[in-house]
Computed example of a mutant assay.
Amino acid sequence: MVFTGLPPAAPGQRIGLYGGSFNPAHLGHRHVSLTALRRLALDKVWWLVTPGNPLKDRGALAPLAERAAEAARVAADPRIAVTTIEAALQLRYTRETLRHLRARRPDLRFVWIMGADSLATFHRWRGFREIAALMPIAVVDRPGFTLRALQGPGAQAMGRARIPERDSAALAGMRAPAWVFLHGPRSPLSSTELRQTGPSPRPRGCGDG
């Protein structure tokens, strides 16, 4: 199921927000989400399928409805909800989305989730310092990006707000700025490669979280 607005959530729940083009969605996205659910003690993860990433070529984008439907197929977990709310509200930048979600659901405890590859370019996002101040951030390691991400301008700018990995389960209850870098098993999948080789295989089950 794909939501065009906010997915349902009970007051007080801990919600991970995972945004991207999902062009296409793949098992690497699912791996990041299941890692976040487990390590951050989250109740749900919302996949925010964006109309387009300002830092990427929109000419290579599949239609939004197609990307969202494929994301829902790949997610294959009742704890992961797919939404196209950014398109419905005509939100272009992450900071706008986070402002809206905090205003609409102040009763939820949000965590922004990103891969280490995104952290490596985080300083190029519009208002990245504001994003870090809006809600806690969890960064999940990706192959080839560990050192580059941690040594990049974005990580350096947030350096003093980094918490020990052993405290990751408490992140959702912390006041921003606060962030954690999660090491562990990493997925080598990327959307760029999958656009060239074909779609992701169907998940075998939901027990790997």
Rank of each mutant, 00 (worst) to 15 (best):
V2I: 15
F3K: 12
F3R: 06
G5Y: 11
L6P: 01
P8H: 09
A9N: 09
Q13Y: 02
Q13L: 08
R14H: 01
R14Q: 02
R14S: 05
L17K: 03
G19C: 10
G20W: 10
S21M: 12
F22D: 05
L27R: 08
H29Y: 05
R30D: 08
H31W: 05
V32E: 01
L34H: 04
L34G: 02
A36F: 01
A36G: 04
R38T: 11
R38I: 02
L40P: 09
W47T: 09
V49N: 08
T50G: 12
D57E: 06
A62G: 01
A65K: 07
A65F: 05
A65N: 09
E66T: 12
A68M: 03
E70F: 14
A71V: 06
A72C: 13
A72M: 11
V74F: 03
A75F: 03
A75V: 10
V82I: 14
V82D: 06
T84D: 07
T84N: 01
A87P: 03
A87W: 00
L89V: 08
Q90S: 13
R92Q: 03
Y93W: 11
R95F: 14
E96H: 06
E96K: 08
L98M: 14
R99I: 07
R99Q: 08
H100I: 15
H100F: 15
R102W: 04
A103L: 15
R105N: 11
P106C: 15
D107Y: 06
R109D: 06
V111G: 07
M114Q: 03
M114L: 14
G115F: 01
G115L: 04
A116K: 02
D117S: 06
L119F: 09
F122E: 05
R124P: 00
G127F: 06
G127L: 13
R129A: 12
R129Y: 08
E130D: 15
E130K: 12
I131E: 14
L134A: 09
P136V: 02
A138H: 04
A138G: 13
V139G: 04
D141M: 02
R142F: 11
P143W: 01
P143T: 03
G144Q: 01
F145N: 12
F145M: 13
F145W: 15
L147S: 09
R148G: 02
L150H: 10
Q151H: 00
G152A: 15
A155R: 00
Q156C: 09
A157Q: 04
M158R: 01
G159S: 11
A161L: 10
R162K: 13
R162F: 12
E165S: 09
E165N: 00
R166P: 07
D167H: 01
D167S: 05
S168V: 04
A169K: 12
A169G: 08
A170F: 02
G173Q: 07
A178G: 08
V180K: 00
F181K: 06
L182G: 05
G184D: 08
G184A: 14
G184K: 06
S187D: 09
S190V: 08
T192F: 08
E193K: 15
G198H: 06
P201L: 10
R204H: 11
G205L: 10
G207I: 05
G207A: 09
G209L: 10
G209K: 02
